[in-house]
Protein backbone atom coordinates (compact mmCIF):
# COMPACT_ATOMS: atom_id res chain seq x y z
CA UNK A 1 0.00 0.00 0.00
CA UNK A 2 2.90 2.31 0.68
CA UNK A 3 3.82 2.50 -2.97
CA UNK A 4 0.40 3.37 -4.21
CA UNK A 5 0.61 5.78 -7.03
CA UNK A 6 -3.06 6.12 -7.77
CA UNK A 7 -4.68 8.99 -6.04
CA UNK A 8 -7.27 8.06 -3.44
CA UNK A 9 -9.57 10.87 -2.69
CA UNK A 10 -10.73 11.59 0.80
CA UNK A 11 -13.84 9.60 1.46
CA UNK A 12 -15.74 12.41 3.09
CA UNK A 13 -15.13 14.84 0.25
CA UNK A 14 -16.49 13.27 -2.88
CA UNK A 15 -15.54 14.39 -6.32
CA UNK A 16 -16.21 18.06 -6.59
CA UNK A 17 -16.17 19.95 -9.82
CA UNK A 18 -13.00 22.03 -9.90
CA UNK A 19 -10.68 19.24 -8.90
CA UNK A 20 -10.51 18.39 -12.60
CA UNK A 21 -10.82 20.27 -15.83
CA UNK A 22 -13.81 18.24 -17.07
CA UNK A 23 -16.85 19.99 -18.41
CA UNK A 24 -20.35 20.51 -17.11
CA UNK A 25 -21.80 18.35 -14.39
CA UNK A 26 -24.17 15.81 -15.95
CA UNK A 27 -25.37 13.96 -12.89
CA UNK A 28 -25.35 14.97 -9.29
CA UNK A 29 -26.29 13.05 -6.16
CA UNK A 30 -26.21 14.97 -2.91
CA UNK A 31 -26.73 13.19 0.40
CA UNK A 32 -28.95 10.63 -1.29
CA UNK A 33 -31.05 8.47 1.04
CA UNK A 34 -33.09 5.54 -0.18
CA UNK A 35 -35.01 3.11 1.98
CA UNK A 36 -37.67 0.57 1.16
CA UNK A 37 -40.70 -0.37 3.16
CA UNK A 38 -40.69 -4.14 3.61
CA UNK A 39 -43.83 -6.28 3.67
CA UNK A 40 -43.57 -6.57 7.47
CA UNK A 41 -43.67 -2.73 7.64
CA UNK A 42 -40.05 -2.41 8.76
CA UNK A 43 -37.80 -0.20 6.65
CA UNK A 44 -34.67 -1.28 4.86
CA UNK A 45 -32.06 1.44 4.39
CA UNK A 46 -30.40 0.82 1.05
CA UNK A 47 -28.51 4.05 0.50
CA UNK A 48 -27.49 6.26 3.37
CA UNK A 49 -25.98 9.54 2.34
CA UNK A 50 -24.28 9.21 -1.01
CA UNK A 51 -22.91 12.25 -2.79
CA UNK A 52 -21.16 12.12 -6.12
CA UNK A 53 -21.07 13.97 -9.42
CA UNK A 54 -20.40 12.81 -12.94
CA UNK A 55 -19.17 15.30 -15.51
CA UNK A 56 -19.69 15.52 -19.22
CA UNK A 57 -17.91 12.75 -21.07
CA UNK A 58 -16.76 11.06 -17.88
CA UNK A 59 -16.80 7.27 -17.50
CA UNK A 60 -17.50 6.39 -13.88
CA UNK A 61 -17.72 2.83 -12.61
CA UNK A 62 -19.48 1.95 -9.38
CA UNK A 63 -18.44 -1.24 -7.59
CA UNK A 64 -19.63 -2.70 -4.34
CA UNK A 65 -20.90 -5.86 -2.70
CA UNK A 66 -24.02 -7.33 -4.20
CA UNK A 67 -27.21 -5.93 -2.77
CA UNK A 68 -25.45 -2.71 -1.84
CA UNK A 69 -27.79 -0.50 -3.78
CA UNK A 70 -25.57 0.21 -6.76
CA UNK A 71 -28.43 -0.27 -9.19
CA UNK A 72 -30.71 1.75 -6.98
CA UNK A 73 -28.82 4.98 -7.61
CA UNK A 74 -29.23 4.44 -11.37
CA UNK A 75 -32.98 3.99 -10.95
CA UNK A 76 -33.07 7.20 -8.91
CA UNK A 77 -31.11 9.07 -11.59
CA UNK A 78 -33.49 8.14 -14.38
CA UNK A 79 -36.61 8.83 -12.36
CA UNK A 80 -37.79 5.23 -11.98
CA UNK A 81 -37.47 5.46 -8.21
CA UNK A 82 -38.15 8.28 -5.81
CA UNK A 83 -35.44 8.74 -3.19
CA UNK A 84 -36.49 9.05 0.45
CA UNK A 85 -34.17 12.00 0.95
CA UNK A 86 -31.42 14.10 -0.57
CA UNK A 87 -31.02 15.65 -3.96
CA UNK A 88 -30.81 14.06 -7.42
CA UNK A 89 -30.20 16.23 -10.47
CA UNK A 90 -29.39 15.62 -14.10
CA UNK A 91 -27.96 18.54 -16.07
CA UNK A 92 -28.76 20.72 -13.09
CA UNK A 93 -32.47 19.91 -13.10
CA UNK A 94 -33.88 18.02 -10.08
CA UNK A 95 -35.19 14.61 -11.15
CA UNK A 96 -38.87 14.03 -10.55
CA UNK A 97 -39.80 12.14 -13.71
CA UNK A 98 -37.48 10.49 -16.26
CA UNK A 99 -35.18 13.28 -17.46
CA UNK A 100 -34.40 13.77 -21.15
CA UNK A 101 -31.13 12.49 -22.53
CA UNK A 102 -30.69 9.72 -19.97
CA UNK A 103 -30.49 6.18 -21.34
CA UNK A 104 -30.64 3.02 -19.28
CA UNK A 105 -29.18 -0.40 -20.04
CA UNK A 106 -30.02 -3.38 -17.87
CA UNK A 107 -28.27 -6.67 -17.20
CA UNK A 108 -31.20 -8.28 -18.99
CA UNK A 109 -31.30 -7.02 -22.55
CA UNK A 110 -35.05 -6.28 -22.43
CA UNK A 111 -35.28 -6.58 -26.21
CA UNK A 112 -38.74 -6.68 -27.74
CA UNK A 113 -38.97 -10.26 -29.08
CA UNK A 114 -41.44 -9.20 -31.78
CA UNK A 115 -39.04 -6.67 -33.28
CA UNK A 116 -36.01 -7.54 -35.40
CA UNK A 117 -32.50 -6.41 -34.55
CA UNK A 118 -32.98 -3.25 -36.61
CA UNK A 119 -36.47 -2.79 -35.16
CA UNK A 120 -35.18 -2.93 -31.59
CA UNK A 121 -32.45 -0.40 -32.33
CA UNK A 122 -35.11 1.76 -33.96
CA UNK A 123 -36.92 1.99 -30.59
CA UNK A 124 -34.04 4.12 -29.35
CA UNK A 125 -34.11 6.29 -32.47
CA UNK A 126 -37.89 6.74 -32.28
CA UNK A 127 -37.85 7.72 -28.62
CA UNK A 128 -34.70 9.82 -28.94
CA UNK A 129 -36.64 12.33 -30.99
CA UNK A 130 -34.50 11.92 -34.07
CA UNK A 131 -36.19 12.98 -37.33
CA UNK A 132 -37.71 9.89 -38.98
CA UNK A 133 -35.75 10.29 -42.20
CA UNK A 134 -32.46 9.93 -40.31
CA UNK A 135 -33.43 6.67 -38.58
CA UNK A 136 -32.27 4.30 -41.30
CA UNK A 137 -28.89 5.92 -41.65
CA UNK A 138 -28.27 5.97 -37.89
CA UNK A 139 -29.42 2.37 -37.48
CA UNK A 140 -27.19 1.29 -40.35
CA UNK A 141 -24.20 2.96 -38.75
CA UNK A 142 -24.88 1.37 -35.35
CA UNK A 143 -25.36 -2.06 -36.91
CA UNK A 144 -21.94 -1.74 -38.50
CA UNK A 145 -20.32 -0.26 -35.39
CA UNK A 146 -21.62 -3.11 -33.21
CA UNK A 147 -20.76 -5.74 -35.82
CA UNK A 148 -24.34 -6.85 -36.32
CA UNK A 149 -24.10 -6.73 -40.13
CA UNK A 150 -26.21 -9.39 -41.76
CA UNK A 151 -28.39 -9.80 -38.67
CA UNK A 152 -30.55 -6.69 -39.20
CA UNK A 153 -33.63 -8.81 -39.87
CA UNK A 154 -32.95 -11.55 -37.32
CA UNK A 155 -35.29 -12.01 -34.37
CA UNK A 156 -33.81 -11.62 -30.90
CA UNK A 157 -34.45 -15.28 -30.03
CA UNK A 158 -32.12 -16.26 -32.86
CA UNK A 159 -29.18 -14.40 -31.30
CA UNK A 160 -26.54 -15.32 -28.73
CA UNK A 161 -26.42 -13.53 -25.39
CA UNK A 162 -23.52 -11.34 -26.49
CA UNK A 163 -25.27 -10.30 -29.69
CA UNK A 164 -28.48 -9.52 -27.82
CA UNK A 165 -26.53 -7.27 -25.48
CA UNK A 166 -24.94 -5.54 -28.49
CA UNK A 167 -28.42 -4.86 -29.85
CA UNK A 168 -29.38 -3.49 -26.46
CA UNK A 169 -26.32 -1.22 -26.57
CA UNK A 170 -27.31 -0.20 -30.10
CA UNK A 171 -30.77 0.80 -28.90
CA UNK A 172 -29.19 2.84 -26.10
CA UNK A 173 -26.83 4.61 -28.53
CA UNK A 174 -29.62 5.27 -31.02
CA UNK A 175 -31.40 7.15 -28.24
CA UNK A 176 -28.38 9.48 -28.21
CA UNK A 177 -28.29 9.97 -24.46
CA UNK A 178 -25.88 12.45 -22.92
CA UNK A 179 -25.81 10.27 -19.80
CA UNK A 180 -25.70 6.48 -20.07
CA UNK A 181 -26.70 4.45 -17.03
CA UNK A 182 -25.48 0.88 -17.32
CA UNK A 183 -26.56 -1.65 -14.73
CA UNK A 184 -24.17 -4.64 -14.90
CA UNK A 185 -24.78 -4.69 -18.65
CA UNK A 186 -22.30 -7.50 -19.30
CA UNK A 187 -22.87 -9.36 -16.05
CA UNK A 188 -24.74 -12.26 -17.62
CA UNK A 189 -22.17 -12.85 -20.36
CA UNK A 190 -19.33 -15.34 -20.36
CA UNK A 191 -15.84 -14.05 -19.63
CA UNK A 192 -14.59 -13.72 -23.20
CA UNK A 193 -17.74 -12.06 -24.48
CA UNK A 194 -17.64 -9.71 -21.54
CA UNK A 195 -14.09 -8.58 -22.38
CA UNK A 196 -15.05 -8.15 -26.05
CA UNK A 197 -18.13 -6.12 -25.11
CA UNK A 198 -16.05 -3.93 -22.82
CA UNK A 199 -13.69 -3.25 -25.69
CA UNK A 200 -16.58 -2.35 -27.93
CA UNK A 201 -18.12 -0.07 -25.36
CA UNK A 202 -14.78 1.73 -25.00
CA UNK A 203 -14.37 2.25 -28.72
CA UNK A 204 -17.89 3.65 -28.90
CA UNK A 205 -17.32 5.84 -25.88
CA UNK A 206 -13.97 7.10 -27.11
CA UNK A 207 -15.67 8.17 -30.35
CA UNK A 208 -18.68 9.87 -28.78
CA UNK A 209 -17.63 10.68 -25.20
CA UNK A 210 -20.98 10.46 -23.48
CA UNK A 211 -21.02 10.41 -19.69
CA UNK A 212 -21.40 6.87 -18.36
CA UNK A 213 -22.22 5.48 -14.95
CA UNK A 214 -21.34 1.82 -15.12
CA UNK A 215 -22.44 -0.38 -12.25
CA UNK A 216 -20.61 -3.68 -11.90
CA UNK A 217 -19.44 -6.14 -9.28
CA UNK A 218 -16.40 -6.97 -11.37
CA UNK A 219 -13.49 -4.89 -10.05
CA UNK A 220 -11.18 -5.58 -12.99
CA UNK A 221 -13.89 -4.61 -15.43
CA UNK A 222 -14.42 -1.34 -13.57
CA UNK A 223 -10.73 -0.44 -13.57
CA UNK A 224 -10.23 -1.51 -17.18
CA UNK A 225 -13.04 0.68 -18.50
CA UNK A 226 -13.52 3.72 -16.29
CA UNK A 227 -11.93 7.09 -15.58
CA UNK A 228 -13.06 6.84 -11.99
CA UNK A 229 -14.08 3.94 -9.78
CA UNK A 230 -16.43 4.68 -6.91
CA UNK A 231 -16.51 1.97 -4.23
CA UNK A 232 -19.72 1.39 -2.28
CA UNK A 233 -19.92 -0.25 1.12
CA UNK A 234 -22.35 -3.00 1.99
CA UNK A 235 -25.94 -1.99 2.68
CA UNK A 236 -26.78 0.68 3.73
CA UNK A 237 -24.42 1.98 1.07
CA UNK A 238 -21.93 4.76 1.63
CA UNK A 239 -19.00 5.70 -0.56
CA UNK A 240 -15.88 3.98 0.76
CA UNK A 241 -13.46 5.29 -1.84
CA UNK A 242 -13.34 7.19 -5.10
CA UNK A 243 -10.34 6.37 -7.29
CA UNK A 244 -9.09 8.15 -10.34
CA UNK A 245 -7.84 5.63 -12.90
CA UNK A 246 -4.66 6.97 -14.47
CA UNK A 247 -4.27 4.37 -17.16
CA UNK A 248 -3.58 5.73 -20.64
CA UNK A 249 -6.26 5.67 -23.30
CA UNK A 250 -6.99 4.05 -25.64
CA UNK A 251 -6.82 1.10 -23.29
CA UNK A 252 -5.52 -2.24 -24.42
CA UNK A 253 -7.50 -4.91 -22.66
CA UNK A 254 -4.70 -7.47 -22.50
CA UNK A 255 -1.58 -5.36 -22.09
CA UNK A 256 -3.27 -3.37 -19.35
CA UNK A 257 -3.66 -6.40 -17.13
CA UNK A 258 0.10 -6.63 -16.60
CA UNK A 259 0.42 -2.88 -15.91
CA UNK A 260 1.47 -2.39 -12.26
CA UNK A 261 -0.94 0.53 -11.89
CA UNK A 262 -3.79 -1.72 -12.92
CA UNK A 263 -2.83 -4.43 -10.43
CA UNK A 264 -2.32 -1.97 -7.64
CA UNK A 265 -5.63 -0.30 -8.12
CA UNK A 266 -7.58 -3.55 -8.27
CA UNK A 267 -5.72 -4.69 -5.14
CA UNK A 268 -6.67 -1.48 -3.35
CA UNK A 269 -10.32 -1.93 -4.25
CA UNK A 270 -10.27 -5.55 -3.13
CA UNK A 271 -8.94 -4.28 0.18
CA UNK A 272 -11.63 -1.58 0.40
CA UNK A 273 -14.28 -4.21 -0.05
CA UNK A 274 -12.53 -6.24 2.66
CA UNK A 275 -12.42 -9.22 0.41
CA UNK A 276 -9.81 -11.91 0.96
CA UNK A 277 -7.15 -11.49 -1.74
Amino acid sequence: MAVMTTEKRAVSAPAKAGSEPAGRVRAELRDLQISFRLPDMSTLDVISGISMTVSEGEFVAVVGPSGSGKSTILRALCGLLKPSGGHVAVDGVPVSSPPPGVGFMFQKDALLPWRTVAGNIRVGAELGGMPAEEHEERIGRLVKLLRLDGFENAWPNQLSGGMRQRVSLGRLLAYQPSLMLMDEPFGALDYQTKIAMGKELLSVWEAERRAIIFVTHDIEEAVALADRVVVFSARPARIVADYKVDLPRPRHMRAMRSDPAFTMLTEAIWADLALPS
Binding site: L112, W114, L127
Partner: peptide, 25 residues
Protein backbone atom coordinates in the same frame (compact mmCIF):
# COMPACT_ATOMS: atom_id res chain seq x y z
CA UNK B 1 -41.17 -8.22 -18.90
CA UNK B 2 -41.11 -5.39 -16.36
CA UNK B 3 -37.68 -4.34 -17.61
CA UNK B 4 -39.22 -3.60 -21.00
CA UNK B 5 -41.73 -1.26 -19.39
CA UNK B 6 -39.07 0.38 -17.20
CA UNK B 7 -36.93 0.87 -20.27
CA UNK B 8 -39.83 2.57 -22.05
CA UNK B 9 -40.45 4.78 -19.02
CA UNK B 10 -36.77 5.73 -18.75
CA UNK B 11 -36.79 6.75 -22.42
CA UNK B 12 -39.90 8.84 -21.80
CA UNK B 13 -42.13 6.83 -24.12
CA UNK B 14 -45.71 8.05 -24.36
CA UNK B 15 -48.66 5.90 -23.32
CA UNK B 16 -49.72 5.33 -26.92
CA UNK B 17 -46.20 4.27 -27.91
CA UNK B 18 -46.03 1.72 -25.06
CA UNK B 19 -49.44 0.27 -25.94
CA UNK B 20 -48.55 0.03 -29.60
CA UNK B 21 -45.00 -1.36 -29.32
CA UNK B 22 -45.14 -3.43 -26.13
CA UNK B 23 -48.65 -4.19 -24.91
CA UNK B 24 -50.43 -5.14 -28.12
CA UNK B 25 -47.61 -7.21 -29.68
Amino acid sequence: DKDQLDLMTSMRAGRFYVVWTVLLP
